[in-house]
């Protein structure tokens, strides 16, 4: 547990020390704002004339599939680059490394999501907003982000540098987004949350998928020893 927290703390510290994190956090928060208030399309609340965040939650998975790989590519990429991965393997067990990296990146992801929370507050000022779908959407986004993160971290172990980690993660997430089988498609699953409907099968799917990819991550680390 202590090792997990230490790895997570290091991950957060590295994240917060990097200007890159602030840049992508601002882009991640500003892009939905643009979609919601500036873009001349039906996702714009001034065009739809409804106090609804459906437009925001339609584009959020797309932003997450770019934001999360950008966030996660550093987790192992930086270790490979600095040559500290072997050192890390000697100081912590497989699960503490996997869970620590996941926890640290997940907290940064939560900060990124929290940065967008001004948008529903602004929409609520414009009329009577139904907060149920908003909370559902954010819950879905957290679970969706967790899956993305687990996928990206698993990909990161196998990739020698950050760029390849980013590209491979993007491809994997893209595949999960367009899978023709609805039961396995993460975007289809996410849309229920965005509509304010939380289904236990969807919760099980996201949590199970995250756990599966974390296990793959652990296997990959075990094989690197």
């Amino acid at each position: 547990m202590i090792a997990t927290l230490a790895v997570a703390q290091k991950e957060i510290r590295h994240g917060l020390n990097a200007l890159f994190f602030y840049l992508i956090a601002v882009v991640f928060a500003a892009a939905p704002a643009f979609s919601l208030f500036w873009n001349p399309a039906p996702t714009n609340v001034f065009i739809s004339n409804h106090t609804s965040l459906v437009g925001f939650f339609q584009v959020l998975p797309l932003f997450l599939t770019v934001f999360v790989p950008a966030l996660a590519m550093r987790a192992y990429g930086e270790e490979h680059h600095a040559g500290s991965f072997e050192l890390l393997l000697t100081q912590a067990g497989d699960w503490p490394i996997v869970l620590g990296k996941f926890l640290g990146s997940f907290i940064i992801l939560l900060v990124g999501l929290a940065a967008t929370f001004g948008l529903p507050l602004l929409v609520a000022q414009l009329g009577d907003l139904d907060w149920g779908p908003v909370f559902g959407g954010y819950l879905g986004a957290v679970l969706f982000g967790a899956v993305c993160l687990a996928v990206c971290l698993s990909a990161g172990v196998f990739c020698p540098n950050q760029t390849s980690s980013f590209v491979v993660s993007l491809c994997l997430l893209g595949t999960l987004m367009v899978l023709p089988v609805p039961a396995l498609n993460i975007q289809t699953r996410f849309q229920n949350f965005a509509e304010g409907l939380v289904l236990f099968p969807d919760l099980g799917f996201f949590i199970g998928l995250t756990a599966c990819f974390l296990t793959i991550n652990r296997i990959a680390i075990g094989l690197r020893r």
Binding site: A25, V26, A29, A30, A33, L36, F37, W38, V111, A114, A115, T116, F117, G118, L119, L121, L122
Partner: peptide
């Protein structure tokens, strides 16, 4: 909306 994105 843009300021809110920058704020956090």
């Amino acid at each position: 909306s843009l300021l809110a994105a920058l704020l956090l």
